[in-house]
Design a protein around this nucleic acid. Sequence first.
DNA 1: AACCTTGTTCCGCCAAGCGGAACACTCAAG
DNA 2: CTTGAGTGTTCCGCTTGGCGGAACAAGGTT
Lengths: 253, 253
Amino acid sequence: MMSELVPNTGDGAVPRAFAVLELLALSNEPLRLSAIALRLGMQKSTVHRVLATLVLLGYVEQEEESSCYRASLRLWELGTGLVAQHPVKRAAAGFLQQLHQATHETVSLTVLSGDDVLYLDKIVSPRPIRFTSRVGSRVPAPLTAGGKAMLAYEPGARAIARRTRQRIQDKRRIEIESLMSELDQVREAGFATSSFRPGVESFGAPIMAQDGRAAAAISVSAPTSRLSASKREAIVEQLLATCADLAERVGAL
Amino acid sequence: MMSELVPNTGDGAVPRAFAVLELLALSNEPLRLSAIALRLGMQKSTVHRVLATLVLLGYVEQEEESSCYRASLRLWELGTGLVAQHPVKRAAAGFLQQLHQATHETVSLTVLSGDDVLYLDKIVSPRPIRFTSRVGSRVPAPLTAGGKAMLAYEPGARAIARRTRQRIQDKRRIEIESLMSELDQVREAGFATSSFRPGVESFGAPIMAQDGRAAAAISVSAPTSRLSASKREAIVEQLLATCADLAERVGAL
DNA sequence: AACCTTGTTCCGCCAAGCGGAACACTCAAG
DNA sequence: CTTGAGTGTTCCGCTTGGCGGAACAAGGTT
């Protein structure tokens, strides 16, 4: 009947434990036991047991004075190890650096994750853009330049667009048909653009894999005020060259 | 009876699930179901069930062709959110940048985690040092400059030194009594030095909290070949100034 | 002092998790 | 082609670990 307060993934010990851990990780302040039990619709004693296990495993710490619980850095430690050995990120690091040197603008590496774009890496411009997405954060793919660059080669692009439209607040941002035709143009031109953040313009291109889909995308973002027609042209040219080189490298490994 | 092959944290569904997840996260290649069962001393059917749960929760992905399992980027995603809101790291970011500008050398931010130092942040020198520790990695605290800077104000320093001596391979690296007297000197001078990596010299100073212990440490590392007496002096001076300023800022929040 | 909270502990009930065994399948050697 | 040793997956009976209600202790606030 879907009568849960929270979109719970199911019952059982493991899903519960992860629900608690995620809640703690996403919350920016330490949480009380009761607050966790309330927000997850679980029994206090259950939450207590789960927390005891997580503390034992080192994923959660309990502040001794306030008896609040917060996630430890264990998750982060495991996570950084994961992304450090990510093949695309490893291969891309030097190319991103080089592209940043050439353009002097903010350069990002993203992959598709569900309906979102996940920021794997980023080199910020010396004069950084405000409201930039943090590395490790996710943004609906159809909004971003890198996301559109990847969606152009994704079979399920239309479904992603529909789901995203349901999800976001300002529905005018995504009109399905215009987006789909934009993706056609992206396939032709080889790059996508986006200005979904006010005052910031982005250019994104896919890193193509052998199977015809995009393994990742690189995007260059700059404030509109700093962009001229010739600068835009130069950015796109350097971006496409970088992605082509990188695709060759990725294909080789 | 402690008859486990692996230092297992205990039985039950949740510890098992985390054992599997950690194994996958730490392994740099995708693992087969049998390999996991073997290495953790678990039944195949148990591993299968656990993996199914982890896949459902989005922490593990299964390659469709080889049916291997690997950790997804979910852990990393949660982890980056965690460290991004870490108060010390947030406060330190600007100071690290500034210290890097002043010294043009590699600057690191570390915290104490167990008996280790955990690298929270790092700004690498334009001519980067080889064999540098990755952000998110851990190194035995008594080996590093930042670690010694923090241990100098840690009550359990001696115990940490003993445990670390047991743990490492080259026991000559740590002589308990000489380390303890070195920590005394660190308290007097306000900074520590280390050259546990061949050819690299590091200077570390603590960021003091109100309780008289070190909340974190900043260290500056440079190849010995690039260091003169005056350069060393300048680095230490700038390092100490930075840590003092930062401690004030951290104390305020 | 009479309430609310909070976190923690206890305990009976029961299902979720466990692991052995059987299954389907692939690949390599015979 | 057949055999065999792997693999991953499924089934199922048993029992243990997890569940949640209730009682408990400790502060904090009215």
